[in-house]
Write a protein that binds this DNA or RNA. Sequence first.
RNA 1: GCCCCGAUAGUAUAGCGGCUAGUAUUGUGGAUUGUGGCUCCAUAGAGGCAGGUUCGAAUCUUGCUCGGGGCACCA
Length: 498
Amino acid sequence: MDSELKEILKGIKGNRDFYPEDYAEYKVIFDAMHKISKQFGYELYEGPILEYAKLIEYKSGQNLTTETYRLIDREKRKLVLRPEMTPSLARLIVNQHQRYPKPIRWYCLPRVFRDETPQRGRVKEHFQLNADIIGVNHPAADAEIIALTTSIIKTAGLKDEEFVCVINSRELLQSYLEFLDIKKKEEVIRIIDAKGKYVQNAIEADLIKKGFKSSESKVLAQRLRTIWQQDPRKEKNYPDIESKSDLAQYLDKLMIIEEKEVKAALEGIGLSSEQTSKVYDFTLIKGIPQDVIVALKSLDVGDKVKLAIENMEELLTYLESFNILKNCEFDMSIARGLDYYTGIIYEFLDRTGSVARAIAGGGRYDQLVESFGGGKIPATGIGMGETVLHSILKKLNRFPSYKHPAEVYVAAISEDVIAAAAKIVQDLRKDFSVVFNPFGWKLSRQLEDAGSRNVPNMVIVGKRDLNEDKVTLRDMKSGEQITVLISKLKEELEVKVI
RNA sequence: GCCCCGAUAGUAUAGCGGCUAGUAUUGUGGAUUGUGGCUCCAUAGAGGCAGGUUCGAAUCUUGCUCGGGGCACCA
């Protein structure tokens, strides 16, 4: 084979081929997304894969990130392969929202593209469910999106204890920083967001000082970071770490390391030691929502912060009404969505330890539509890629084994009954998935074919039966056969195919 | 962009400087003429790509490509 052709046939890095067995797994997730979105009364929409580069720039108010696929068309227009759906959604809303009564509940399952290095749960091309409520600014809307997402994740195959939705309020975080008279809010948020990295870097540096090899230190520090993030109270045992005396000591000190490193970073950008410890203590507030509300209420804060806390409390009541409180935690250290989110923000995290990335993430973005010149239209929504969820479910072995779609295999024994068989096939196809191979194959070959594809039922059409208006119905698994009148065939099959 | 690991038929693997590249399974065709999954026969199919070292490279080496994992980034 030509060497160039060989390279081409490998495909583009990070883009994916879905063979039928693979697609069947993703379909479990897609079906859950469609089914639940419909259950919640969301309408399906779609947009173009190509958009003007400017549209993405408007949304973010900055230049295109390096990850966006760019292209130029024949008319020299600068276009992009959509890296996310929200800008297109905002475009649709700005253009025609007046046609629709509010709130608008829409969902979409677009293929989106990002030119980034593939990692676990991260590829260049993926499907990303978007579900949004547009036109109301009410905590119940945020709660509904969280309920919808929870339901999808559970329908796809995860159990309650295997994931968690962590919730914070950007409004609360910001107003609290304002209350403390902190100017560099963005930088503080960035440090809080990256605290895991501070812990990891400190451990890595310490390990190198102790004489570990640089590459080994990196791996070990990562492992400790993962433990610290997923199990801060150290409830489980970690034999791989505990067996090494050099490492075991870190397990108990993770919280201390975090405090020291994060505080140093905060003071490093000019916060007073009082501001630093107040901010740090604030980020430690996390846990079951009721407890967090109590802790927040005990803080001595201004009216603006109190309002934000009341908002959180209201959200809590809706989470409870929607029966998803058990899936939720409030966590003041979650700082996702620096740029666009304005209120409640949330992300769904894996608790099985398979994948570090978020399963889904979303929040309230009340100013986005306005920034496109579309008037003050509040909105909240979620984005959920299929890759992280798939990766977790795969690791847990939750996908059913692959099944060929055909329910019935119709075999014609000889060429002179093909016409009669074809007629039966046509009729059966109104109710069943039917495979028919009228290629003049011998019966034994057709039996083997049906067997190798795991088609459960076979209808054998031959002259002998046909003379009495009958066919033979064979159960491929047991090998049992009965002859039935053609007119009764469907009835018989209906019992077998459920 | 950076780091680690890997790459032999569709799949799973063997060989580790002497290749005419072995095995299993899968594919295709056939042998039992209206009853398969067994057996048998035939047939097809591979060292990711490009260069270097060497008398000789699948094997050693360099770069790239693709895959897996991580960092940074992004969310």
